[in-house]
Amino acid sequence: MSENVLSFVESRAGLGEKFQAHYEDAEVWSSFDRIEHALAAEEEFGIQFSPEELTELGSPKSFVDAIQSKLNGN
């Protein structure tokens, strides 16, 4: 996993020390926060999520995995 992606998601998360504790928490963000984080990731990494991929974004971990997968060309 790229440190770059992890630190991006961590900085966006705004969870501070609780980041690890909520890493797999799908309810940690509101739906609007999730879409803003997805848009920021698209802007930052030059990627584009499909509607299906956007639906699956929830926890910080899902973001890290989805961004990484896009960067890997999957």
């Binding site: 739906s31 879409i35 997805a38 848009l39 802007e43 584009q48 499909s50 509607p51 956007l54």
Partner: peptide, 13 residues
Amino acid sequence: ERLADFTGTRCSP
């Protein structure tokens, strides 16, 4: 249109 269902608007970011 890809984002419209998520953002609630047809307008792009």
